[in-house]
Design a protein around this nucleic acid. Structure first.
Lengths: 238, 238
DNA sequence: TCATACGATAACGTATACACTAGCCCTCCG
DNA sequence: CGGAGGGCTAGTGTATACGTTATCGTATGA
């Protein structure tokens, strides 16, 4: 009875997975993405649909759809008869991603400044900057990275343009994959914290153009730093 | 025999569709998108998967995948139990899309100027501008729109950042849906042509910052015009 | 007459079955 | 012994079958 295992209680065992996120496709998507981001599926890791389906306890159908989505987002590549392959992030890729983020987030900063949101909305940005400062003093890099991520997510969420935010999120996720490796190699991001704080001021003041330019400059500088790090440490293993 | 029609020669009739683009999923995606962009599936048009599958001569499986992709790109919405619905483009949507394009294309202009490509590559941009001028003199709006589109596609293609270009293309497609309706309502785009020509000059000169700012300013102005038009003609039917 | 509840149905999500193809290995011939 | 050709196999893409569920219509009661 080949398919007996898969029949394990038609509607009950499935509930558990669905509870996480609506459909099995979503569940597969989230789970595979999580494993990639956690380096559990490291770069160049290969797996065929059946394996993944087995691992995730579902049939190939939802797995297949999830893979298409992930491929579209650039996290994996689907090789004809060899399954998916987790794409490594080359320095060139990181440069591209940073350039997109530069454009997107600078625009978001401008829009947010222009919106003139009430202070209590802006406050969440300030909270994030404070967390960054605290982490910096404690020299807690992971905490700093987390707070930084919070800040940028918030920026995108608040900007009022859902499409812009969506694109930003997608590219942020990819940056975060690389962050793990590059973070310890960086200087202590003192200037970065200061810049974030200034940005909040500009947003508060409604100075849209200055906010955009500040954020852009900051991103450009960050990109340059990263490129330099990648040049010095050729991270082939990513 | 319900499924008899679908059996029409297992591998032969399928060839025709696959020839267009590799897989049936792609075929479905292209075909449905084409119909949406051609207003053959007008905004708010609804259809269920089975109908589409029947129309396209394939099973629900590839149709389903194509719909997911289209939904992800924002052309349709999948309403549970009611099939897909072609999304109308509201003025608010257009504003969002323009803002994304502003950010993306300004960045592309900057990158392209920075690349310092040989003149023969840049030439294709100039060709497009010339076509725009010619169309403007002949007062041929569709030709102008086409040349304009060529220009912007070329700009993205040449910028050297494939991810940036990809995002740009996706949003351009959405803008083009609306173009049909808004184009006749616009002023004769004399300034636009001039701006395009200046942009080419700046790119040739390698003045990246100026190129970015010029393109941004131009987009902002275009967005403002469009918003104004949409305000005056509440295009509910889009 | 209107609202509510129940059943039929239609549509989707998922599983499974099937067909087709590319890649690999083995064999055979040069 | 090496290269080429053919068959076998594994893996995907597509079709179909199935179960689940939301929605719509109808009927009944207030």
């Amino acid at each position: 009875m080949a398919g007996a295992r898969a029949q394990r209680g038609p509607a009950q065992a499935r509930r558990k997975l669905r509870a996480e996120s609506g459909s099995l496709v979503d569940a597969a998507y989230q789970e595979i993405k999580a494993r990639i981001l956690a380096n559990q599926f490291p770069p160049n890791y290969q797996a065929v649909e059946s394996e993944l389906a087995l691992t995730l306890g579902m049939s190939r159908t939802p797995v297949h759809e999830a893979l298409v989505r992930l491929a579209h987002e650039g996290l994996i590549e689907i090789i004809s008869r060899h399954g998916m392959r987790v794409l490594p992030i080359s320095p060139a890729d990181m440069v591209e991603i940073y350039q997109v983020l530069t454009a997107i987030e600078a625009q978001a900063a401008e829009l947010l400044a222009r919106r003139g949101l009430p202070d209590e909305e802006i406050a969440s940005l300030e909270t994030a900057v404070n967390a960054m400062d605290a982490a910096l003093e404690a020299d807690d890099r992971p905490a700093w990275a987390h707070a930084d991520e919070q800040f940028h997510r918030r920026l995108l969420e608040l900007c009022g343009n859902r499409r812009l935010a969506q694109v930003g999120f997608t590219f942020r996720e990819q940056v975060n994959r690389a962050r793990l490796l590059t973070l310890p190699l960086r200087e202590r991001p003192v200037r970065s914290n200061q810049a974030h704080r200034t940005l909040v001021e500009l947003i508060r003041a409604g100075d849209a153009d200055a906010a955009r330019e500040l954020h852009r400059a900051q991103r450009v500088r960050g990109g340059a730093e990263l490129t330099e790090i990648l040049r010095r440490f050729p991270l082939e293993h990513m």
